[in-house]
Design a protein around this nucleic acid. Structure first.
Length: 490
RNA sequence: GGUGGCAUAGCCAAGUGGUAAGGCAGAGGCCUGCAAAGCCUUUAUCCCCCAGUUCGAAUCUGGGUGCCACCUCCA
């Protein structure tokens, strides 16, 4: 069953054939660390996390690089405006590096909780100034760039392939449509590789062209090629970066090396709110912390907090290449669906310790095939989930009838751990908050036993009181033929 | 003005030529002391509209309508 991926470069699904299997080298545009991450970041990085996890599950040896942008990302276009990190630093009276550290930490906190695996290498733009200067020199030497007043610009007309990713023809790019044209550029469509810095600029470095700082597009080319080579397999990012960012990356990289930069370009689509793109300028963004961080104020639009895996479930329940209109209703549905998955996983793990039935005749091979086929079809997580839900019903039925055999229970547990856990990242290794000495388990068991005695004596008022008070404390009881079990809420 | 994308039940969401997955919510039933969990049944004669191609289209073609994104920064 071959893997197919949608390649933005050719606008179609293609057979995935890495340049040097079993190695897969992959780069994804990381965040600019000047604020807390919002759900748009969550969608993007959960999407690429799934992609990495599936590639690894398939046996590929993935090297995943994701940058941290801490310089050069301007509030306006690439030639005017203020550096985003510097602007935030000025506003808060902190050093730009303190801002970068603060929000990098925040980013990691959020994504760790969303069960997003960290990249293998996470390079900072400010840590790679020499590499960026070197790339500038190569482009100047190759005749693809020119220097004016201490700034270096890419000469767009010198690169024939410009526009091949975004499908834009140079003539169609409306020069200066909504941006003031920078006079010193030869062509309004040229973009900055290196910018001369004013005397008081907070972040600047010496270069052959004087003190300055790198343009935003440059870092991704310099760092991706440093760690992955001149040609690598996958480059990912948000759809809005397709043009100009990724188009510029191709021009810079291929202009400098003469080699094909990236084989497969993958772009995740956007999260919208009320049908509009979520953005800082629109003021309609919702932070990851708004949803999952108990210590963070409750967002008025949400009314409450959700578990981190609920947000992950919500994102994975739609395809990475489709828009997602954010809503609390969607979150609620994801929460209930996730709970269903967790319930069946827990039930199966309980069954592992039981004798087991004579066999329910589950077609586990078919179930696994369905999940794999979905993921092999451009990482179709909604279909993979549907297959898992089909399996869930079959397993629940078998469990209720007591027919699930020990072998089947083991096989189902393996399937759920692999696909629900390792690949989709939705099932935890352990469900109970087992303390070091397991004291919680013991205490809950005491209450369960007391309640059983009460029920035995038909004292349902006391029995219900115990159950209600445990429920209020977040411990949910479930009476089964074999006895009462419990699980944590959420 | 240019480029790209999307329109499937109350909500979310798959499906890209063979006769509408899955989840949530709702209704009825089973189970239960009552719940919870779970199971069963049920909820789109139809996929924005109009033409066309075809034995056959939600799926292809043409036209229209609506929405979104990019062409400034944004995952």
């Amino acid at each position: 069953m071959p893997l197919h991926v949608y390649n933005t470069l050719h606008r179609r699904k293609e057979l995935f054939e890495p340049l040097a299997p079993p190695r897969v080298r992959m780069y994804v545009c990381g965040p600019t660390v000047y604020g807390h991450s919002h759900v748009g970041h969550a969608k993007s990085y959960i999407s690429f996390d799934l992609i990495v996890r599936w590639l690894r599950c398939r046996g590929y040896d993935v090297t995943y690089v994701q940058n941290i942008t801490d310089v050069g990302h301007l509030t306006d276009d690439a030639d005017a405006g203020e550096d985003k990190v510097v602007a935030e630093a000025r506003q808060r009276g902190l050093h730009p590096m303190a801002i970068a550290q603060l929000y990098t930490r925040s980013y990691h906190e959020d994504l760790d909780r969303l069960n997003v695996l960290r990249p293998d290498i996470q390079p900072y733009a400010t840590g790679h100034i020499p590499e960026q200067i070197e790339l500038c020199r190569q482009l100047l030497a190759a005749g693809h760039a020119y220097e004016v007043n201490g700034s270096v610009y890419f000469d767009v007309q010198s690169f024939r392939g410009y526009g091949k990713l975004s499908g834009r023809v140079l003539d169609e790019v409306q020069a200066g449509a909504r941006v003031a044209v920078v006079e010193e550029k030869r062509d309004a469509r040229d973009f900055a590789l290196w910018k001369a810095a004013a005397a008081g600029h907070l972040m600047q470095w010496p270069s052959p062209w004087g003190m300055g700082f790198p343009g935003w597009h440059l870092e991704c080319s310099a760092m991706s090629m440093k760690y992955l080579g001149q040609s690598f397999d996958i480059h990912g990012g948000g759809l809005e970066n397709q043009f100009p960012h990724h188009e510029c990356e191709i021009a810079q990289s291929e202009g400098a090396t003469g080699q094909q930069y990236v084989k497969y370009w993958l772009h995740n689509h956007m999260i919208t709110v009320g049908g509009e793109k979520m953005g800082k300028s629109k003021g309609n963004f919702i932070l990851i912390k708004d949803i999952i961080d108990e210590a963070w104020p409750v967002h008025p639009q949400l009314g409450r907090k959700y578990g981190p895996l609920v947000l992950r479930m919500y994102v994975l329940n739609s395809h990475y290449r489709s828009d997602l209109d954010f809503s609390s209703e969607g979150l609620e549905a994801a929460e209930a669906g996730l709970q269903r998955l967790h319930n069946v996983a827990q039930a199966v793990r309980r069954a592992l310790d039981q004798p087991g039935g004579s066999g329910a005749g589950l077609d586990l091979a078919a179930a696994e095939t369905a999940v794999k086929a979905a993921l092999d079809d451009d990482f179709n997580s909604p279909n993979a989930l549907a297959a898992l839900f089909d399996l869930t019903r079959a397993v629940n039925t078998a469990l209720a009838a007591g027919t699930l055999s020990a072998a089947e229970a083991q096989a189902v547990d393996r399937l759920l751990r692999t696909y629900g856990g390792a690949v989709l990242g939705l099932l935890p290794e352990q469900f109970t908050a087992a303390g070091a000495a397991g004291i919680e388990d013991a205490l809950v068991q005491v209450l369960i036993d007391l309640r059983a005695e009460a029920r035995q004596g038909r004292n349902f008022a006391l029995a219900d009181s115990i159950r209600d008070r445990l429920t209020a404390a977040g411990v949910l009881l479930e009476d089964r033929p074999a006895g009462t079990t419990w699980r944590l809420a959420g």
